[in-house]
Design a protein around this nucleic acid. Structure first.
Length: 436
RNA sequence: GCGGUCAUAGCUCAGUUGGUUAGAGCACAAGAUUGUGGAUCUUGGGGUCGCGGGUUCGAAUCCCGUUGGCCGCCCCA
């Protein structure tokens, strides 16, 4: 059996694995729908240029890409954002605003495997297009939090760190830095948590040592953990910052009114790489800090246009399934038995089997999950199978029952039995199941 | 791409200084058991000891290579 194995980093889902995955997907989908988001999907295979256009040439090293038989350069999708931008961009003028969309899809990245990271994984993606104000962020951060709370996680388990690339730009601008230097500082900020002072090495090499006073102010800014401190630090540093602070108040106020304040922290240490983000950015982490990021997102107002669409503001985030599953398992929130029949039939012999088939068929047509042994076997074995199946009821089709013109129905939990007429089987089962 | 570490049954693992036909528990299957529950007992199927090469009379065991897993680095859209 060792001849053919899965490609490195790829996963197989045996029924019990898929049951868990389906459970996760079901709650994500249910939550997104409750928030008024519409589901979409798109091809797994895309033109390679779609990702080069967004992320540059160097991205190719981490893509599953190849040339197809028609000579096209293609790649398995590593993320959903460029695809959804194309979808929305193509019909931007016809779509009702705001455009609130989500998807649950599989992605591929040619990377080294690690805990919570594989070469193929699933993400829940949600985006809002056409809304430039922080109202879109309120909705999305709320959805992100709810997507985790839906599983029983709470503010003891995870939190969302909220940051803002605009605020950094305006602040560093106010401190007198030009754009290349601002980008350099943001690069250092992104790495500061991990490398401490060494994070500024790259900046120093490129621009020379950062002025000590300036650096202290940047590090102090990095430490800010509340809106009040933010307002205090930025008071009277110019109109841009004042206006931006109003957005912050609106965003945090909205989340507080939704009851999500305990989940959100101001944390300017989050920069989200140097990619395409243009405003608020946020990441969700487990409180213990043992796992990789659970989710991440932010505003990307320029990307739709960059990919050939009209100018269209956008915010979005994604939750990955691997780290999330690890967290659920850590907290004992991943259910084990998600699938069990409602009814298991115990069958005495060939003649009884034919009698049972009529009821089995009728019950299945009513939507009940019904199972039975494919081959005749001892009653003891069948009752054992019935109990192990997790079914609530057993229907007993034996010689004695048929001779008496009845079917025996057994409650597998309290082990009581009673007799019903064959014509009443369906209604009795229905009443029992619906009574819980 | 780099470094560390590991690889024996579906799973968890044992396997002595290199020595007969590689074991246990769990799981699976059959029987005891053609009329009532997750038990017990008996039995069974299942292994190229990751793969390839080398040393040796003899390799699961030692050596080299390789593939894959795990952990970390780079990266993380």
């Amino acid at each position: 059996m060792a001849t053919f194995q899965t490609l490195p980093g790829f996963r197989e889902f045996y029924p019990e694995d898929l049951a868990r995955r389906n459970h996760v997907f079901r709650l994500w989908r249910q939550t997104a729908v409750a928030y008024g988001f519409a589901e979409y999907d798109a091809p797994v295979l895309e033109p390679l240029d779609l990702y080069k256009a967004k992320s540059g040439e160097e991205i190719e090293a981490q893509l599953f890409s190849f040339t197809d038989k028609g000579g096209r350069e293609v790649a398995l999708r590593p993320e959903m954002t460029p695809t959804v931008c194309r979808l929305v961009g193509a019909r931007a003028n016809a779509l009702k605003r705001p455009i609130k969309w989500f998807s649950i899809a599989e992605f591929y990245r040619y990377e080294r495997m690690q805990k919570g990271r594989g070469r193929c994984f699933n993400q829940f993606n949600a985006d809002i297009f056409g809304e430039p104000g922080p109202e879109a962020e309120i909705e999305l951060v709320a959805l992100l939090i709810q997507c985790l709370c839906a599983f029983g996680l709470n503010e003891q388990d995870f939190y969302v760190r909220l940051s803002d690339r605009n605020l950094w730009f305006y602040y560093l601008e106010a401190l007198g830095l030009d754009e290349p230097r601002i980008r350099g500082v943001l690069g250092a900020v992104d790495r500061y948590e991990k490398y401490g002072d060494d994070a500024f090495k790259g900046y120093t090499e490129q621009f020379g040592a950062l002025d000590a006073v300036l650096k202290d102010r940047i590090l102090a800014f990095l430490q800010i953990k509340s809106l009040e401190a933010l307002e205090h630090t930025l008071a009277s540093l110019g109109d841009k910052l004042t206006a931006r602070l109003a957005d912050w108040r609106k965003l945090l106020g909205g989340l507080e009114a939704m009851g999500f304040a305990p989940y959100v922290t101001v944390d300017l240490g989050v920069v989200r790489g140097l990619a395409y983000y243009t405003g608020f950015v946020f990441e969700a982490f487990d409180r213990k800090g043992e796992l990789r990021a659970l989710a991440g997102g932010g505003r990307y107002d320029d990307l739709v246009q960059k990919l050939g669409g009209p100018a269209l503001p956008a915010v979005g985030f994604a939750i990955g399934d691997m780290t999330f599953a690890l967290l659920l398992e850590q907290r004992g929130l991943m259910p084990t038995l998600v699938t069990a029949p409602d009814v298991y039939c115990v069958i005495g012999g060939p003649a009884e089997r034919l009698a049972a088939f009529a009821d089995i068929q009728a019950l299945r047509a009513m939507g009940f999950r019904v199972d039975y042994p494919l081959k005749d076997s001892a009653f003891g074995k069948q009752f054992k199978a019935a109990a192990e199946s997790g079914a609530k009821l057993a229907l007993i089709y034996g010689t004695d029952e048929l001779a008496k013109g009845i079917v025996k129905i057994r409650d597998l939990k309290d082990r009581t039995e009673h007799e019903v007429r064959p014509g009443d089987v369906c209604s009795v089962v229905r009443d029992f199941i619906s009574a819980g």
